[in-house]
């Protein structure tokens, strides 16, 4: 199991698309782990343009089935969780 602290990534990358790309890279380098936990503590208001360069790109390149059940967000805000759910559902329906 690996834990990625989102706040650390945000501190290193000022702009959301760049932070998303960095998150993508960290997830990819840990894809062999059984579970990847993204700790969203102190991070709120994740915009879709960060999801595009992280989760969206993962789905594009590896397929949803490869990441389903593997990636979890801890300490996530309710609204962000809702945005994420909606994002993934739209993304999958678009790519299928």
């Amino acid at each position: 199991m690996c834990i990625i602290r989102l706040e650390d990534i945000m501190k290193r990358h000022q702009h959301y698309p760049d932070a998303g790309t960095a998150l993508y890279a960290e997830i990819v380098s840990n894809l062999q782990d059984e579970q990847i936990i993204i700790d969203s503590e102190n991070v709120r208001g994740i915009p879709t343009l960060m999801l595009n360069t992280s989760i969206g790109r993962l789905i594009d390149e590896f397929g949803y089935s490869r990441i389903k059940g593997k990636i979890c967000f801890k300490h996530m805000g309710k609204t962000d969780a809702e945005t994420l759910r909606k994002y993934i559902s739209h993304y999958i329906s678009k790519t299928v």
């Binding site: 059940g69 979890c72 967000f73 300490h75 996530m76 609204t79 969780a81």
Partner: peptide, 12 residues
């Protein structure tokens, strides 16, 4: 209308 601020656990 926004929800109360609380941490949740969300699985993809």
């Amino acid at each position: 209308m926004l929800p109360e601020d609380e941490d949740i656990f969300e699985e993809i």
